[in-house]
């Protein structure tokens, strides 16, 4: 997709920034109508809200290696993955606001975003997207294409049956599949230490006779390098792989999560190592971009996101009776 590393790294930076700015606006939009008393069902964006601030490298540094025709299945925390995959930002935002112009005409909401044009889907059931990615990879192989499928999951999903069944199938059939495990250390309130019998999940690849990669400390550059290799292997028919990236969850599991289960200083420590700032520093040091270039880029990003919010906010709600449509196509 991108010719060289400089382009790729700028692309990753752009997507990470877009995602971060999108989520920061969403944090505010979500709180509208929910203050001073928080009520999950109130305001212009009701329901659960899982934001991805801090987890951007997992998505951007992987998806830079994909094309529009490669498939991505994502999680209940899907915005960074959707933005990197090129999901229509206006329609995605409108969906999250429950508008008629949204990707699912207001029926899906933030956990259920579907954009078949860029082959993106996500869902609210942990681990459920993995077999879908297996199916997409199977279809790619049957059709004789070199397209790949990438399943994004959290570290919690690795303990679901769906993961193991899917990995065995993918390995057995030598499918062009990459599973990206976003290890943000927490399955809601349960720490990885208390949910997972091995320290890292890349080692589980051995159980399926496939390749496993580990990326430490939310490193966007290392994630890029490793993903590139995994995707190339899949494209060449060399089989599936698992990448686990240690990433950071800056916010609660959902907005409104009291987070009494984690140390108070955990997030400030993580924020001090922010991956976007680290990549920015790298771009400047390696003279891949100037301060001015990045300032201009940031302006473009903000404009794009602001436009999406404006589109969503100004769009109409569906008519009530539209609830009855689309059960069957």
């Amino acid at each position: 997709m991108k010719k060289n590393s400089k382009q790729d790294l700028l692309w990753i930076y752009r997507k990470m920034k877009t995602s971060r700015y999108f989520e920061e606006r969403m944090e505010k939009a979500y709180l509208e109508g929910k203050q001073p008393v928080f009520n999950i069902g109130a305001g212009p964006v009701p329901g659960e809200m899982h934001l991805s601030n801090g987890q951007e490298p997992a998505a951007a540094s992987m998806i830079v290696n994909l094309t529009k025709d490669d498939t991505v299945t994502a999680t209940h925390r899907p915005h960074h993955q959707a933005i990197a995959k090129g999901v229509d930002l206006k329609k995605m935002t409108a969906e999250i606001f429950g508008k008629k112009t949204g990707l699912g005409k207001g029926k899906g909401g933030h956990m259920h975003l579907f954009d078949p044009i860029v082959k993106f889907s996500c869902g609210g059931i942990v681990g459920a997207g993995i077999p879908h990615a297996v199916g997409a990879a199977l279809a790619n192989k049957k059709k004789g294409t070199d397209r790949v499928a990438v399943a994004f999951i959290g570290e919690g999903a690795v303990n679901s049956g769906a993961f193991h069944e899917s990995m065995n199938l993918a390995a057995l059939w030598n499918l062009p599949l990459v599973v990206v495990v976003e290890d943000n250390s927490w399955g809601i309130s349960v720490s990885k230490k208390n949910s997972t019998c091995v320290p890292t999940n890349d080692v589980r690849a051995a159980a399926y006779g496939i390749k496993g990669y580990g990326v430490r400390d939310n490193d966007p550059l290392k994630m890029y390098e490793v993903s590139k290799e995994a995707v190339e292997r899949a494209r060449k028919g060399e089989g599936p792989s698992i990448i686990e990236i240690e990433t950071y969850r800056y916010l609660g599991h959902f907005q409104g999560d009291p987070e009494l289960y984690r140390p108070k200083d955990e997030v400030s420590k993580l924020r001090a190592k922010d991956p976007i700032e680290r990549l920015k520093k790298y771009l400047l040091e390696e003279t891949l971009a100037s301060e001015e270039d990045l300032r201009v880029l940031d302006q473009e990003i903000m404009k794009e996101v602001d436009n999406a919010y404006e589109f969503a906010i100004n769009s109409a709600y569906p008519e009530p009776e539209e609830a009855l449509e689309d059960v069957f196509v």
């Binding site: 069902g41 009701p46 329901g47 969906e95 429950g98 508008k99 699912g104 207001g106 029926k107 899906g108 909401g109 933030h110 259920h112 709600y317 569906p318 008519e319 009530p320 009776e321 539209e322 609830a323 009855l324 059960v327």
Partner: peptide, 16 residues
């Protein structure tokens, strides 16, 4: 609920 999955948008959910 009239045999549809529960929709997200408040106006739709309230309707069903």
């Amino acid at each position: 609920i009239p045999d549809v999955p529960i929709p997200y948008s408040r106006v739709l959910e309230k309707y069903v």
